[in-house]
Simulated assay, not measured.
Amino acid sequence: MVMATAISGYTSNSASAKKCRKKKDLKVKAKNGLAALTPGFAGADIANVCNEAALIAARGDKTQVTMDHFEAAIDRIIGGLEKKNKVISKLERRTIAYHESGHAVAGWFLEHSEPLLKVTIVPRGTAALGFAQYVPSENLLMTKEQLFNMTCMTLVGRAAEQER
């Protein structure tokens, strides 16, 4: 919570928090951009994003926290640490790209699927070589059509790999 106070304009005793000051237009961008990038996040999750964004900016010796820092923080919280040392061949990257694009294309054409938010082929976490992120539904119950579309979107990633 100490880092979040640096972003909202208050001073803090933390050295890295002192390095990070907000941009004047960050509030406007935050209302539109961050809300769309963090669907379903609770207050603690958003505070975690703010702290992580401040840390990313401080690691880069930046004096301001930008939207790029917030986007990197959201990716890190949702997907895990980026595996920069993971060596992936060109063929594997291509296969991962087909797999993730299969999820995205299926989600686009299926009527009862959740809207796509982001697709990446950056390896993160222990097993994920990429992921497709969707805007979660507010509904607690799913219809038969929604369940069928979710199943199709899940399976079409592997099918896209086979069809390339």
Rank of each mutant, 00 (worst) to 15 (best):
Ile88Pro: 01
Lys22Ile: 11
Val119Glu: 06
His99Gln: 05
Ile121Glu: 06
Gly125Ala: 06
Ala73Pro: 01
Lys62His: 15
Ser89Asn: 04
Ala127Arg: 14
Glu71His: 05
Ala104Tyr: 05
Cys20Ala: 15
His69Ala: 05
His99Glu: 03
Glu145Ala: 15
Glu100Met: 03
Arg158Ser: 11
Gly102Asn: 02
Phe131Met: 12
Thr63Lys: 14
Ser14Val: 13
Lys23Gln: 11
Leu91Gly: 02
Ile7Phe: 10
Ala36Phe: 07
Asn32Phe: 07
Glu138Ala: 09
Met142Ser: 14
Gln64Glu: 14
Gly9Leu: 09
Arg94His: 13
Ile56Pro: 02
Tyr10Met: 13
Val156Phe: 11
Ile121Met: 09
Gln64His: 15
Gly60Val: 01
Arg158Phe: 03
Glu82Leu: 01
Thr154Ser: 13
Ala104Asp: 05
Met153Arg: 12
Lys27Asn: 11
Gly125Cys: 03
Arg21Tyr: 10
Glu145Asn: 15
His103Glu: 02
His99Cys: 05
His112Lys: 12
Gly157Arg: 05
Ala128Asn: 09
Ala47Trp: 07
Arg76Pro: 01
Lys118Met: 03
Leu91Ser: 09
Asp45His: 13
Asn51Arg: 12
Gly102Val: 05
Ala106Leu: 07
Ala127Thr: 12
Ala15Lys: 14
Lys83His: 03
Lys86Gln: 07
Glu100His: 03
Leu26Gln: 10
Pro123Gln: 01
Arg164Leu: 07
Val87Met: 04
Leu155Lys: 11
Ile88Met: 13
Asn48Leu: 12
Thr126Glu: 13
Asn13Phe: 01
His112Ser: 08
Arg76Cys: 00
Ser137Tyr: 04
Ser101Asn: 08
Ser8Thr: 14
Ser12Thr: 15
Val135Lys: 10
Ile77Gln: 02
Arg164Ala: 14
Thr63Tyr: 06
Cys20Lys: 03
Cys50Arg: 03
Leu55Phe: 02
Ile78Cys: 01
Asn13Cys: 00
Lys24Cys: 02
Lys24Gly: 08
Leu37Ile: 03
Val156Pro: 05
Glu92Gly: 00
His112Ala: 08
Asn51Met: 10
Met67His: 04
Met67Leu: 12
Ala57Arg: 06
Ala128Ile: 06
Pro123Gly: 03
Leu147Pro: 07
Ser8Asn: 10
Ser14Met: 12
Gln162Pro: 00
Ile74Gly: 04
Ala73Tyr: 02
Glu71Met: 10
His69Lys: 02
Thr154His: 06
Arg164Asp: 12
Val105Arg: 13
Ala42Pro: 00
Leu91Asn: 07
Thr120Leu: 01
Arg94Gln: 15
Pro136Tyr: 04
Asp25Glu: 14
Val87Cys: 00
Arg164Asn: 14
Leu140Gly: 13
Phe70Met: 13
Cys20Trp: 00
Leu110Ala: 05
Gly60Cys: 10
Val49Met: 10
Val2Gly: 05
Ile74Gln: 08
Gly79Met: 12
Ala159Gln: 11
Leu116Thr: 11
Pro123Ala: 04
Lys86Asn: 00
Thr63Leu: 10
Leu55Ile: 09
Leu155Gly: 14
Phe41Asp: 05
Met153Ile: 15
Glu145Tyr: 11
Asp61His: 06
Ile96Leu: 05
Ala72Ser: 07
Arg93Trp: 00
Lys84Trp: 03
Met3His: 13
Arg94Pro: 00
Gln146Cys: 06
Asn48Glu: 13
Ala104Leu: 08
Glu111Ala: 11
Ala42His: 07
Ala17Asn: 14
Asp75Phe: 03
Leu81Glu: 11
Thr63Ser: 12
Val122Glu: 10
Lys27Met: 08
Ser14Cys: 09
Lys144Pro: 06
